[in-house]
């Protein structure tokens, strides 16, 4: 084991490179899966929380159910946003196995924890995204006969999702970094692997510097990729003008007063 900096780093990479790579792989797996599932949870929760109250003043089953689900969802959001993910990991992982007897693998538990944690954050982001869409969009959709679900599906959510894409990417980047807390339940992600390498070599700052570099490359790449996706979603900046003999010009000027214009 060399004692000077660069040879030491080289030595670590040569002998333990695969440990870092495997750790980075698990980190990305958890972060990506957790963000995707969390995004879906957030969408669901966010949509439910923006369902307008049914009209009519009397108590109805629909109204009570909506109210109840809103209360439960609020508790979910507040609890998961108000406690550290590291603590959530301990409670859920050991709680499931010790109290209920459900033994999950650390990896599965990690993905579940990151997902519901992300879901709680994304629910608020989604709600904000939906509420930021101009009310005129909803009115136009309703005016052509769309119900609430269709309005959401075809008009509001596509716009809201585009608007919250940056926040989602942000959440992904945060997740890449925050999966490191899952080492407390022995998920063999990048941070856990780094600790193992340090234990084997008794080298600390060289090992963690490598890890820092890897985290940075991961988050930086993801940030850039997401920016590309956003650009793509905005569609082309121009449009094609169609001209053909089947589309007569100046038609507007005909068919004035009293004449019927066939279409």
């Amino acid at each position: 084991m060399p004692t000077t900096f660069f040879p030491a780093v080289w030595y670590i990479l040569e002998n333990y490179g695969s440990w870092f790579l495997r750790g980075a792989g698990i980190t990305m797996l958890i972060a990506l899966t957790g963000t995707v599932i969390g995004f879906i949870i957030g969408l669901g929760v966010g949509v439910v929380r923006t369902i307008p109250a049914p009209r009519g003043g009397k108590f109805s089953l629909k109204k009570i159910l909506l109210k109840l689900s809103n209360i439960l969802l609020n508790i979910y959001i507040e609890v998961f946003r108000g406690t550290p993910m590291m603590v959530q990991a301990m409670v859920i992982y050991f709680g499931l196995s010790e109290a209920i007897g459900v033994n999950l693998s650390p990896l599965t538990a990690g993905i579940i924890i990151v997902s519901i944690n992300t879901g709680a954050y994304m629910a608020e982001v989604v709600r904000g995204g939906i509420q930021s869409i101009d009310k005129g969009q909803t009115e136009a959709a309703r005016s052509i006969g769309m119900n609430h679900t269709k309005t959401m599906l075809h008009v509001i959510l596509p716009q809201a999702i585009r608007n919250i894409l940056p926040a989602t990417g942000n959440e992904f980047v945060i997740n890449i970094k925050d999966t490191s807390v899952l080492n407390v339940i022995s998920v063999v992600e990048l941070y856990f692997q780094t600790k193992s390498v340090r234990g084997a070599l008794f080298k600390t700052y060289e090992v963690f510097l490598i890890t820092a570099a890897i985290y940075f490359v991961l988050t930086f790449t993801v940030t850039r990729l997401l920016r590309l996706v956003e650009k793509k979603m905005d569609g082309p900046s121009g449009y094609t003008i169609f001209t053909s003999s089947t589309m007569p010009q100046g038609r507007l000027l005909r068919g004035r007063r009293g004449k019927e214009t066939a279409v």
Binding site: G136, E139, S143, Q159
Partner: peptide, 20 residues
């Protein structure tokens, strides 16, 4: 009500075209 609305077209002051 939704079926009824398909029978009445509405044109708004602010156009409200679906921007997506």
């Amino acid at each position: 009500a939704n079926h009824y609305r398909t029978k009445l077209g509405m044109v708004f002051q602010q156009f409200n075209l679906f921007s997506n």
